[in-house]
Design a protein around this nucleic acid. Structure first.
Lengths: 230, 230
DNA sequence: CGGTAAGGTGTACGCTGTACACCGGTCAAG
DNA sequence: CTTGACCGGTGTACAGCGTACACCTTACCG
């Protein structure tokens, strides 16, 4: 045992190795083909061996989330709260985009992981250090929602197939959904002649993020409090 | 066949009956216990019978989404775009909240359903009727993201267990996550003595929605266009 | 009256997560 | 030096899932 056929000792399983291999496998093969069995095979081990390092699959996914959260850059210091938050969130976005399955897994978590709590604690700290009240910060965090993670909940982010064909199908339905078609083409590029590649996700994300941060700043400056609104 | 033991003719299966029974079952037993087998049993039919009315489970979920979308009130007319959109989105929220599993299922859809497209078409129409440019409307829709459905992507919306115990655990970790604890209690109620029931979701949702709508209105008034920003 | 199609049935397959018993190796205590 | 406990990897097994496929009954239409 702990020996391979050729007699060389196998690098032992650890929780870390399990987690990082799982992340790599999900990156390569998609989250859909990550099963306890496929992961075990990847680690050249029997499926049940994983359970010595991870309580169950849910906890495996929790651990994977924390691996990704660990890739988020530390807070920049010396910046005003607005750009500090902005920068951190965009860093989270970069981390999440590196792993296409990540947003889906983050969404599916039912309880916060330790890494998650650390991250939130730190983002909240930025608002507070900037002088925003605990009250406003509370509502700001809710307003950001999943956007703190750097992703917008896209309506229909799925594989979607060939975008060319999809665009064609949409144009075909232009009499039923004229405004969707109009909106889908608007803002996509300067020449609106082709439906083409769709719109710039990064731009859309920053647009919404800045809109929210602008709102927070405005409310902060005018000393807004939730007291009068409830 | 098509007879029950007592000889009375069984009401025949239809796509609609399948869909509505599925919704009711998910409401009652939770989305987690909705399987093709459990749904079949509910309909007093063999599992494979469902496949004569629904291509597969994904399409079943699509159909269930459209049932919920069908519960959204039609647009109010005669209102300015801002309150028209607001009202419609809040109606969507009411529909979604009636079915706790709905937001999760909506999120999991990979391609838009017909009902979904109708709804989006109509919301877009409200912005356009209010005079917003196709460009601004495009970005506005992206900014709203899943909020058009009336739900914020909550960080960790899970069962979470006893909130009392959860709050106690959080307070216990107050030295590790002091700002999270502070923020969790802030804005929850006027007397901050108890962590208690958490915060008012409805308020949080409307706060963020109004912040965004305010932003759209401001940009609209100043004739904003995305051209200069990219 | 007979053929066709629609709809409900039964069986079976491959996949999933994971419970539970087992067992070899390492290491500490007697 | 032996013994016993524990840690970590193994093997088998089970219940549940979605669903492919062949079948059979019934309703209807020419």
């Amino acid at each position: 045992m702990a020996q391979q056929a050729d007699g060389t000792r196998r690098t032992p399983l650890t929780r870390d190795r399990v987690l990082h291999t799982a992340v790599a496998l999900a990156d390569r093969a998609g989250i859909g083909s990550l099963s306890m069995r496929s992961l075990a095979q990847e680690l050249d081990v029997v499926p049940m061996a994983l359970y010595k390092h991870v309580a169950n699959k849910e906890q495996l996914l929790d651990g994977m989330v924390d691996v990704i959260v660990g890739e988020i850059d530390p807070p920049a210091d010396g910046a005003d709260w607005r750009s500090a938050v902005r920068g951190r969130v965009l860093s989270a976005r970069r981390a999440l985009l590196r792993h296409p399955w990540a947003s889906q897994v983050v969404e599916s978590r039912t309880a916060p992981t330790p890494g998650t709590l650390d991250y939130l604690e730190s983002v909240i700290g930025m608002f507070r250090a900037g002088g925003l009240s605990a009250d406003l910060t509370h509502h700001a965090m809710h307003a950001l929602g999943s956007r703190v993670w750097g992703f917008t909940q896209e309506l229909f982010h799925g594989p979607g197939g060939d975008p060319q064909a999809q665009a064609a199908a949409l144009r075909e339905a232009a009499d039923r959904y004229p405004r969707i078609v109009e909106i889908a083409t608007a803002g996509a590029h300067d020449d609106g002649s082709v439906v083409g590649r769709g719109c710039d996700d990064q731009f859309e994300f920053e647009f919404a993020l800045d809109l929210l941060l602008d709102g927070f700043e405005r409310l902060h400056r005018q000393g807004w409090t939730s007291a009068g609104h409830r």
